[in-house]
Amino acid sequence: MLHYVAKRLLFTIPVLIGISLLLFFMLRMLPGDPAQVLAGQMATPEEIQTIRQQLGLDRPIHIQYASFLGRLARLDLGLSARTQNPVIQEIWARLPNTILLAMTAISLACLFGIPAGILSAVRPYSWIDYIVTIAALFGISMPVFWLGLMLVVVFSVILKWLPAGGTGGWQHVILPSITLASFVVAFIARMTRATMLEALSQDYTTTARSKGLTEKTIIIKHALRNALIPIITVVGLQFGLLLGGAVLTETVFAWPGLGRLIVDSILARDYSMIQGTILIFGLLYTLVNLAVDLIYAFVDPRIRYD
């Protein structure tokens, strides 16, 4: 098992190198000159040239990439062209916010999505199933920014219960995480319903029932444990997306996370920062995938890594 984990961790290195390679060349195909953006509209060609030299942008592109890789090996992601701070430091400052928001959102989504899905599967086509289905439809189709703004209007502006944005105490996390969870909760609920319906129609469920077990035992112990594998897959994927894709939510709630950092950096053509943030996203994503695979083995005895 440890052997397997070590192997998988080692394997993230070529994956990250692959990401960096793609990223490095794609970024440089973007229209717009970072030196020009930094120097401003009024800069003379000489000023722009100086900045280009400072950033190393005047050297051939493969040399640039080699030096980038060399620094990466020492965990040096360079300086941000926009703020002049080390990239790693900026990312480090925002990473906890992003993780906190994603964790809260995914927990909320599981906490409500899985039981809702189970309830609908246990009583398909009942009123409770219809309510869950309709709510899920709303959750999936509601635009994130609109939901975020509505929550702010109701809970911050009208009721004055919760802050409209920024960070601080737990109160600040509630609205953004609800906003972020709305899609995921709906998705998880639908997925749980489908996999539970399937598990409940399997032969082993009939066997369990023929033993005279209670409905609760049949649903939780026999059906849910089997239905959990596809649910875990979905939760893992969604968690990975939440870690990287909370741009709209972070913007609506002025939440200082990585999503906004990357948008700001793209607007400023801040290459080092974009590269650094995306590499971190890649790393987080592979780690989440590894965690999901390890949880599989824990839930399903047929899966073994050795």
Binding site: Y204, G212, T217, N226
Partner: peptide, 29 residues
Amino acid sequence: RGKDISMIFQEPMTSLNPVLTIGEQIAEA
């Protein structure tokens, strides 16, 4: 069910729960 009348099913491949041990499935009954 299971106490006065119990049932044996046709397909031993699918009638046992894949994620629970054999012992547990007998013990729980």
